[in-house]
Write a protein that binds this DNA or RNA. Structure first.
Lengths: 227, 227
DNA sequence: GGTCAGATACTCGATCCAAAGTATCACGTT
DNA sequence: AACGTGATACTTTGGATCGAGTATCTGACC
């Protein structure tokens, strides 16, 4: 019954836009883009229209009018309802106050790190560090440009500042990890090296050896290799 | 034709598991859970079986045997193919070396920050800071426990270390932001306050006033930031 | 005055995925 | 001996998602 229960932040973006004034979906999209919100909220038309439909079904927005210019497709203008205002407020408050578990791709990749030989891992991490650095330079330049060239108050850039900080932190961690592998300081390195010695040639991952150890089972336990 | 082209990291997890030895999907799931990989990779059965099906269709894994114990459902055991080994390697390398644009929920929320009154925003951010702090304490304890109680090498915890670092950085930013709002230091604060003065009562967001300003349009400008 | 890029406005269909469901077994409890 | 609980192993369902597609209009340029 409860369609799309607070999963896609694009729905929040729509609500907040309509809070400002009634719009048709396409106008919401262009507004979000103009304000660079499409950098923080995944925006594409398919999702937009489906999200709008579900908001209407839930009574959070309603049709205000249907226009048509020439023979272009109709524009359905929506306005927010009281329920919608409430939902927008509560949802935003929730997103701000409660950290949400997410699954960044790099975290997943790190969890499979032992599957690659240490040397290759270091090379790849170095590449990442370089890309992070250049990306950071670009982003920082973009921010400065907005603040200085036009006098855009920082209030409207907090999300970008946050993103920059997070990338800086990631870069820090990547560098530290590289250093600890290179210096042999990282616990488990010997094991890591040995399982990648026999087959330097073709097979990029070591077969037979576990790519990571079970984190449980301090004692040898007969878990279910049920054959 | 190319089904599910490197979107769901669960597929990589399956490949890496099967690199170790042939398994049936359910066993992959329990293995991942035992190794706490379900903290870094979103894991649920629906996705697991559909991902496995698509890997088979793409020739990256193949059926090794079909078992049955009693009247329980059949277990289809899969093994990885050479193509699968290659794909696993390349995919993992790509994830490690290239930062991927993602859309954290908190970044989205920050981009709508001006929609809430400053006081409420500060209160909510404070709540977040508290939750981040207690979460961090819990996580750090968990790590220490694994390292000390059982002698688990840090190599198998890099993804968790990364997650902790990221949260620390987030906490830093949240604290800094709170301070800058409280001290009146943040650019745009006056405007933020004024648009939230008339209606302290019911409407939690100010209608009529733009919740954030267009970032473009001082001069008609050629786009600028392409991602 | 023709054409061609780009904006306008939405639609479609093919995947993708999360959550719940199904059915069996295993084990301990009362 | 009936019951409950949790593990085993996979299926089903229907919504969510995304990229591409359609068709029109606008304006710039030569």
């Amino acid at each position: 019954m409860v369609a799309r229960r607070r999963n896609n932040p694009l729905a929040l973006a729509v609500l907040v836009c309509l809070y400002e004034r009634p719009m048709h979906p396409y106008e919401v999209a262009t507004t979000l883009r103009q304000r660079h919100k499409d950098e923080s909220v995944r925006l594409n038309y398919g999702s937009l229209y489906s999200v709008v439909g579900s908001l209407e079904k839930r009574g959070l927005i309603e049709t205000s009018e249907v226009e048509r210019a020439g023979r272009l497709p109709e524009r359905t203008v929506y306005r927010i309802t009281d329920a919608g205002r409430l939902e927008a407020h509560d949802w935003l408050a929730e997103l701000l106050a409660r950290p949400l578990k997410e699954y960044p791709a790099f975290e997943a990749a790190l969890s499979f790190l032992p599957a690659l030989p240490p040397d290759e891992a270091v090379a790849l991490l170095n590449e990442r560090a370089l890309e992070l650095e250049s990306g950071l330079a670009r982003d920082a330049y973009g921010l400065l440009e907005l603040v200085e060239r036009r006098g855009l108050p920082r209030l409207f850039l907090v999300e970008a500042e946050y993103a920059v900080k997070m990338r800086e932190a990631e870069l820090d961690y990547v560098k530290q990890l590289i250093a600890e592998i290179a210096s042999g300081e990282l616990g488990g390195l010997e094991w890591w090296r040995t399982i990648h010695t026999a087959d330097m040639a073709d097979p990029p991952l070591p077969s037979g050896a576990p790519w990571t150890q079970p984190l449980d089972q301090p004692v040898a336990q007969a878990k279910g290799s049920n054959a």
